[in-house]
Design a protein around this nucleic acid. Structure first.
Lengths: 236, 236
DNA sequence: GTCTATAAAGTGATAGAC
DNA sequence: GTCTATCACTTTATAGAC
C-alpha cells in the first residue's frame, strides 16, 4: 500500500532517505550533495547520476510527501462529506486537513520528531521552485477545502474562508517545524502532550476560530476603529 | 525616536540595509557576503571589518527588529492591562502581540512586502543561533502574554494557553512570509485586502479560537475518540 | 552503475598596502 | 576605513576509466 512514499529500492532509495534525514535536521539549503552521499555511503557522483542534479533530489523528496499527503487529505474530505447529510461537520473537515500530515509517521525511517520537521519544511518551503503539478494540487486543495468549510459555515464568503484556511495552514506548519523551540524556551510550562493531544487542541482552536468570527468582521465598519498604533493600509 | 531600528549612519548602515533587502528576498542562508557588499556598493572586506563575520551581520539584522518589536509588544500589553479593570480585553491583548510586527513598516527602506517577509523570516528563523538575550526575551514574552490571556480566560491552564499562543505565532509568521504564495495560487478568490483588514481578520480568528475551545478540550475523554486515521501517540 | 579526477566557480576570511 | 590580492576551502557537476 506504501509505494507512493517509497521509490524502487537500492541506492536511489538510500540517497533519498539520507537526504530526508539531513534536510529535516538542517533545512533544504544547508545540506550539500557531499553531505548526502556521505550519509548514504554512496559516491559523490551518485546524486547527479540518479536525480540529474541536487535540485532533482530536492524535488524527489518533496514529491514523495506532498502528493500522498494531499491525496489522503482529499480522500478524508470525501469521507467527511459522504458521512454528512449535506452539511459536513467542521471538525471532520479540519481533521481531514490536519491529520494526514502526521498519519504516516510510523512508516518513515525517520524519528517522529524529524519526520514532523521534514513534513513541515516541505509544506512551508518557499525557495525551491516546485513543479506546476504541485501548484495545481494546492489550488485544487484550497478550492475543495474552502468549499467544504463553506457548507459547514454558510455565511462566510469564499475570500474569508481562504484567509482563515491560510491562518490554519500557518499554525500547522509552525507546529511541525518550531515545536522543539517551544519546548526549549517554555518548558516545563507547556507540558509534554502527545501529538494526538496537540492535534485535537489545534483542531478545536481552529474550529472555534472559524465558527464565531463572522459577525465581528462584517460589523467592523460600524464600530469605531482601534487607533492604538498607526494602521497599515498597504496590501501584503 | 527611531534609534533602535537605525544604527549609526555611513557604510555600516548601508551594509545592514543591503543585507536586509537580500535576506528578505532570498532568506538568510541563500545570500553571500559578496552579494551583500555588491548590493551596498562596498568592498568585500567591509562586512568582516564592521561586523566581525557574516554571522555577526545576520545577528545585527535580527536584533535590529527583534528587540524593538518585542519591547513594543510589552508596552502595548501594559497599556491594554492598564485600560482594563482587572480583566483585559482579549482582542487588545492579541492586538498588542500582532500589530507591532508591522507597525514600523513605513520607517524601513524596504517595500512593504519585503519588510513583512523579513520580519517573518526573523521571527520564524531556526537555523541561526541567536544570543541568549533573545531567548530570554522570548521566554519573558510568552510568560507575560499567557498571563494576560489567562486573566481574560480564567478557566484555561497555563499549558493550554502556551499551546494556543504557539498556534497564533505560527499563523502570524506564515502570514508574513507566505502570503505572496497565497496570492499566486488562490488569486483572485482571496481578494486584495489591506494588511489592516488582514490583521483584524487574524485577531478575530485567534480570539474566537481562544475563547470557546475550553469545554471541548476538557470534555475530550468523555466523548468517544475519533478513529478515522490511526492516532499518533508520540510527543513532538 | 560506480568510481576517480578534475573542472569551474563560489565561499568566508584576512594580511598588508594605502 | 578602504582597498587589492590571495588563502584555504567548499560547492555542483561532469568526463572518462572501469
Amino acid at each position: 500500500m506504501n509505494q507512493t512514499i517509497v521509490p524502487n529500492g537500492g541506492p536511489k532509495l538510500r540517497l533519498v532517505e539520507a537526504a530526508e534525514k539531513l534536510f529535516a535536521e538542517k533545512g533544504f539549503e544547508a545540506v550539500s550533495v557531499r553531505d548526502i552521499t556521505k550519509e548514504a555511503g554512496a559516491n559523490v557522483a551518485a546524486v547527479n547520476y540518479h536525480f540529474g542534479s541536487r535540485d532533482g533530489l530536492v524535488v524527489a523528496v518533496m514529491s514523495r510527501y506532498l502528493t500522498p499527503v494531499n491525496q489522503e487529505r482529499l480522500a478524508e474530505l470525501d469521507k467527511a462529506e459522504r458521512n454528512a447529510s449535506g452539511v459536513p461537520v467542521l471538525e471532520e473537515v479540519l481533521d481531514a486537513y490536519v491529520r494526514p500530515l502526521v498519519a504516516h509517521v510510523g512508516r518513515s525511517e525517520l524519528s517522529e520528531k524529524l519526520y514532523c520537521k521534514l513534513v513541515g519544511r516541505i509544506f512551508g518551503e518557499q525557495g525551491v521552485e516546485v513543479p506546476n503539478d504541485i501548484q495545481n494540487q494546492t489550488r485544487n486543495l484550497i478550492e475543495r477545502f474552502t468549499r467544504a468549510m463553506g457548507k459547514a459555515l454558510p455565511n462566510y464568503t469564499q475570500e474569508e474562508l481562504i484567509w482563515r484556511l491560510h491562518f490554519i495552514a500557518g499554525g500547522l506548519i509552525h507546529l511541525l517545524t518550531h515545536t522543539d523551540f517551544l519546548y526549549r524556551v517554555a518548558a516545563p510550562a507547556c507540558g509534554t502532550p502527545t501529538v494526538e493531544t496537540t492535534i485535537e487542541r489545534f483542531i478545536q482552536f481552529a474550529a472555534d476560530g472559524l465558527r464565531s468570527g463572522l459577525e465581528a468582521v462584517e460589523g467592523e465598519e460600524e464600530g469605531e476603529p482601534k487607533k492604538k498604533i498607526p494602521q497599515a493600509t498597504f496590501n501584503f
